[in-house]
Amino acid sequence: MKFRPLHDRVVVRRIEEDERTAGGIIIPDTAKEKPMQGEVVAVGPGARNDKGELIALDLKEGDRIIFGKWSGTEVKINGEELLIMKESDIMGILEGKKASKKAA
């Protein structure tokens, strides 16, 4: 991707969740909520503190994250729908084997 976010912003690709309930019922598109999980696509260099020093972000490209339902701004880059949000909008990073298996 040829897009680099500024400061403490992050570009995220939503990860679609399963379209079926545990009982096997298929959820129609109109009843689905937007996914609150995503994969970090690009990361800005970081924010500056009061002294002007750069504070690097805790995220890196490829991290699976959880963010708030209404977080970020939806944009279309190279025909792909992505979210741009501040690092503070991100609630946490999913770690472990389960997180990497779901991404594949």
Rank of each mutant, 00 (worst) to 15 (best):
residue 79 G to K: 06
residue 8 D to S: 11
residue 87 E to F: 02
residue 83 L to H: 02
residue 71 S to T: 08
residue 77 I to F: 08
residue 20 R to Y: 15
residue 68 G to S: 12
residue 60 K to M: 08
residue 25 I to K: 15
residue 54 L to G: 08
residue 57 L to E: 06
residue 65 I to S: 06
residue 104 A to L: 14
residue 43 V to K: 03
residue 63 D to A: 07
residue 31 A to C: 11
residue 45 P to Y: 05
residue 23 G to R: 14
residue 55 I to D: 05
residue 3 F to K: 01
residue 56 A to E: 14
residue 32 K to M: 11
residue 5 P to K: 04
residue 66 I to K: 08
residue 77 I to A: 03
residue 96 G to H: 08
residue 6 L to M: 10
residue 84 I to E: 02
residue 33 E to I: 09
residue 41 V to Q: 03
residue 36 M to V: 15
residue 41 V to H: 03
residue 50 D to W: 14
residue 47 A to G: 09
residue 68 G to M: 08
residue 33 E to D: 11
residue 22 A to S: 10
residue 13 R to Q: 13
residue 86 K to E: 09
residue 43 V to G: 01
residue 61 E to F: 04
residue 104 A to M: 11
residue 90 I to W: 04
residue 55 I to G: 01
residue 73 T to N: 09
residue 12 V to A: 02
residue 39 E to Y: 03
residue 5 P to D: 03
residue 43 V to S: 03
residue 21 T to N: 05
residue 86 K to W: 00
residue 102 K to P: 03
residue 29 D to C: 02
residue 73 T to F: 10
residue 70 W to G: 00
residue 48 R to K: 15
residue 49 N to S: 06
residue 26 I to Y: 09
residue 11 V to Y: 07
residue 44 G to F: 03
residue 92 G to F: 11
residue 37 Q to G: 02
residue 61 E to D: 09
residue 49 N to L: 10
residue 22 A to E: 13
residue 100 S to A: 12
residue 2 K to C: 03
residue 27 I to F: 11
residue 39 E to P: 00
residue 90 I to M: 02
residue 96 G to N: 07
residue 102 K to G: 12
residue 23 G to I: 02
residue 7 H to A: 07
residue 66 I to R: 12
residue 17 E to S: 12
residue 45 P to S: 12
residue 50 D to G: 07
residue 74 E to F: 00
residue 97 K to M: 04
residue 52 G to W: 05
residue 3 F to L: 07
residue 63 D to R: 06
residue 5 P to F: 03
residue 50 D to C: 09
residue 19 E to G: 14
residue 23 G to V: 07
residue 78 N to S: 10
residue 85 M to A: 03
residue 61 E to Q: 09
residue 80 E to H: 02
residue 56 A to Q: 12
residue 21 T to L: 14
residue 41 V to W: 03
residue 91 M to S: 08
residue 52 G to R: 05
residue 78 N to G: 05
residue 17 E to N: 14
residue 8 D to R: 09
residue 55 I to R: 11
residue 2 K to Y: 06
residue 5 P to Y: 04
residue 50 D to N: 13
residue 96 G to R: 06
residue 9 R to M: 09
residue 95 E to S: 06
residue 103 A to Y: 10
residue 18 D to P: 01
residue 17 E to V: 06
residue 73 T to W: 02
residue 84 I to A: 01
residue 56 A to M: 09
residue 86 K to Q: 11
residue 56 A to W: 07
residue 40 V to K: 01
residue 50 D to S: 15
residue 62 G to C: 06
residue 69 K to M: 12
residue 54 L to I: 15
residue 84 I to K: 00
residue 55 I to S: 10
residue 18 D to I: 08
residue 34 K to Q: 15
residue 101 K to L: 15
residue 13 R to G: 05
residue 100 S to P: 01
residue 78 N to C: 04
residue 63 D to T: 04
residue 63 D to Y: 04
residue 61 E to W: 02
residue 96 G to F: 13
residue 24 G to M: 14
residue 13 R to P: 00
residue 27 I to W: 05
residue 19 E to C: 11
residue 3 F to H: 07
